[in-house]
């Protein structure tokens, strides 16, 4: 054994990838660029551009979330933690379930049925203009900064891994993401993130398999697993780190910062994730997506991002490789040792996938925030949708350029501003999370309470930076940093408690909005929300899906209309036979266009199988499941006909859903 090991000792790699690796990465980026840009043809309205027409299946949403959840720094950061602390490196990936009930049955139906398009818009409707202004000011700054922050991070990672200049990597990724996000909007983001999700899972698991094979020497892969496991001490094999030490990485700090504050941020105030869920075809599909992601994908992601560190730990201990000079280099050391030319490039392409998928999501989300919370309400009100659609594309391009500028600024003028952005995140997150949570789950929470929670919470967190001792009662025995005196993780718990205390106290002494004003915006009014979303009483009977051939006719069918039936549509628009003559939908009390659905017709038997009635909301999609809803539309059931297996719709409805002639449709009742 010792003789074998001696043969395996190699120098820690000092060189970077070879030309096949560069070819793999460049080809991958070009494929993603073309793939993403292709989806521009499916964005026919502003709502399509930002929410993909709310028509996608759970697996598409769930898989695309994989890439969004694994950030630009995840591979390097968690590999380093795995190398230093063992398998507890991934504990932040497996502590998200505790808030899922509030998300599945609270926040998700609230945002879906109330049709809010951004967090600040929710603040406007729940708390009023002051809260919205505060939220826009804070979130917009944070998000644009975050794009630059990620671009800078990826530049440093690319430099570290490939040896290329930081600015080359920053410009390349910003251009690739900027082009396909501007062309295809949310649909491009979802489909490219689907590809990137597969890419980073396969790349990470491939690295794990090759690394285990390397550890196994001439044995089976199970020998590699045994070698990895026996190399780790008991503390390194456990799923959690030590309770409260060292201060740089301990269980209690990670639990409160990632498991509580991070989970709340991810589920409740991430504009990018919110838009992803609003792109689902129904609330149930959103629930399936979060279930799939949290129960199955996050544990796999934990292995994907952390395994290089565990392997590196075993390889260094067994002498298979020299210890790297810096622990953060362990990912590239293991990747290059375990993978041959080309395969190393594939693993690096997986790393690029993690980088691009975060940036594309934030670019699209920031553009939505700008259009819906700044441009539409304050700069250009009441313009036609095609104007906002064009503005959305321009905003996406401008935001990509601004993010690029910030990334290059971080590169040129050092990392002080970079650190400031990290600190800004710790200031902003707890107060906004508290305002959203109390707004969604406590009817008595007042507009004054929300503003006080945000401003007071930020003030308290600022105080903790000046007087770190105020965090000590929340520290669970964690000692502050020796140099700065700051508590690295526990400020999150302190910020949440302070913000909640201020918000609740102020609310108890101020006047809440009336129940009518907040109907549909807090958890106790979901039945009202569903009724308003549908435009009639919800139908909760569970029916079956039916398959139907599409027939184009205007007999009893309409294009998109706010009417609940064909007769009502005729009464509303007696002179509008041609689609082009349709009047724009009137606005509701929140200044949003009222929901419009095409009226389509099924046979009486088909409606009975779906347990649907005239006026119910249906989801009609191309029967090919693997399209994930790309060719689909929400429709309203019209008067029944007598031809089983046939769905009648207008030419306009057919075109809007991007259906293909001759292809059958699959139909299900939603509400």
């Amino acid at each position: 054994m010792i003789h074998l090991l001696a043969q395996e000792v190699v120098e820690a790699p000092k060189t970077y990838g070879s030309w096949p690796d560069y070819v793999v990465i460049i080809v991958y980026m070009l494929v993603i660029l073309g793939f993403g840009s292709f989806f521009g043809r499916f964005a026919k309205s502003t709502r399509d551009f930002f929410f993909s027409g709310s028509k996608f299946s759970w697996w598409l949403i769930g898989m695309s979330m994989v890439a969004t959840g694994v950030g630009s720094h995840s591979f390097v950061k968690y590999a380093q933690k795995g190398y230093e602390h063992g398998m507890s490196s991934g504990m932040s990936y497996m502590n998200d379930w505790f808030f899922i009930p509030l998300f599945m049955f609270g926040w998700l139906p609230i945002i879906y049925f109330s049709r809010v398009r951004s967090i600040p818009e929710y603040f406007q409707r729940r708390f009023g203009t002051v809260a919205r202004f505060l939220a826009v000011f804070l979130i917009l700054q944070y998000m644009v900064g975050y794009i630059g922050f990620n671009l800078f991070t990826l530049g440093t990672v690319a430099h570290q891994v490939l040896g290329i200049d930081i600015w080359v990597a920053i410009v390349a990724i910003a251009v690739v993401c900027g082009v396909y996000v501007t062309a295809g909007g949310q649909t491009a983001v979802i489909f490219t993130d689907l590809a990137q999700g597969f890419m980073l899972l396969i790349g990470g698991l491939l690295l794990f398999a090759l690394g285990l094979d390397r550890l196994a020497l001439d044995g089976a892969i199970t020998d590699g697993i045994a070698a990895l496991w026996t190399n780790l001490s008991l503390a390194e094999r456990l799923p959690f780190a030590h309770f409260n030490e060292p201060q740089s990485f301990n269980f209690i700090g990670v639990f409160w910062q990632d498991g509580v504050a991070g989970s709340l941020m991810f589920l409740f105030i991430s504009q990018g994730l919110m838009m992803r869920f609003l792109a689902a075809k129904s609330v149930n599909e959103g629930r399936k997506a979060i279930l799939f992601n949290t129960l199955f994908i996050l544990p796999i992601s934990m292995i994907v991002v952390g395994n290089a560190g565990w392997l590196g730990n075993a390889m260094v201990d067994t002498g298979a490789v020299d210890a790297p000079e810096e622990a953060r280099d362990i990912f590239v050391v293991v990747a290059e040792l375990a993978c041959g030319p080309g395969v190393f490039g594939f693993v690096l392409a997986a790393l690029s996938a993690a980088l691009m998928s975060t940036i594309d999501t934030y670019t699209n989300a920031t553009a939505a925030l700008f259009i819906y919370d700044v441009y539409q309400p304050y700069i250009k009100r009441g313009a036609p949708d095609r104007h906002y659609m064009r503005s959305a594309r321009i905003a996406s391009a401008v935001i990509a350029v601004v993010g690029l500028g910030i990334g290059l600024y971080f590169m040129t003028f050092g990392t002080d501003l970079y650190k400031i952005h990290g600190m800004f995140q710790s200031f902003v997150t707890p107060p906004i999370v508290v305002a959203v949570l109390l707004g969604a789950f406590w009817r008595r929470f007042t507009p004054a309470g929300a503003v006080a929670a945000m401003l007071g919470g930020m003030l308290c967190i600022w105080l903790s930076k000046v007087f770190p001792g105020v965090v000590a009662p929340f520290a669970h025995g964690v000692v502050p940093d020796g140099e700065t005196g700051q508590y690295m993780y526990m400020t999150a718990l302190y910020g949440l408690v302070c913000s909640a205390f201020i918000g609740v106290t102020v609310s108890l002494f101020t006047k809440p909005k009336t129940p009518e004003q907040i109907a549909g915006l807090w958890v106790g009014t979901m039945d009202f929300g569903m009724k308003r979303f549908k435009g009639g009483k919800p139908n909760h009977a569970v029916g079956k899906k039916v398959k139907a051939n599409i027939t184009i006719t205007s007999d009893g069918t309409t294009g998109p209309t706010i009417a609940l039936s064909f007769d009502e549509h005729q009464a509303m628009f007696p002179d509008s036979d041609a689609p082009a003559e349709r009047k724009p939908a009137p606005f509701d009390e929140h200044g949003q266009p009222k929901p419009e659905y095409s009226i389509v017709r099924f046979s009486t038997d088909d409606l009975q199988r779906m347990k649907a009635e005239e006026g119910d909301l249906l989801y009609v999609s191309d029967a090919r499941w693997w399209l994930g809803g790309l060719r689909s539309s929400h429709c309203r059931a019209g008067k029944p006909h007598d031809r089983n297996g046939v769905v009648m719709m207008t030419d306009e409805a057919f075109e809007l859903a991007s259906f293909v002639k001759g292809r059958p449709a699959r139909v299900e009742k939603l509400l």
Partner: peptide, 12 residues
């Protein structure tokens, strides 16, 4: 301790 703390506090 971490296991007992996470699943004790773990809100649900």
């Amino acid at each position: 301790w971490p296991y007992l703390y996470q699943y004790g506090i773990g809100i649900f």
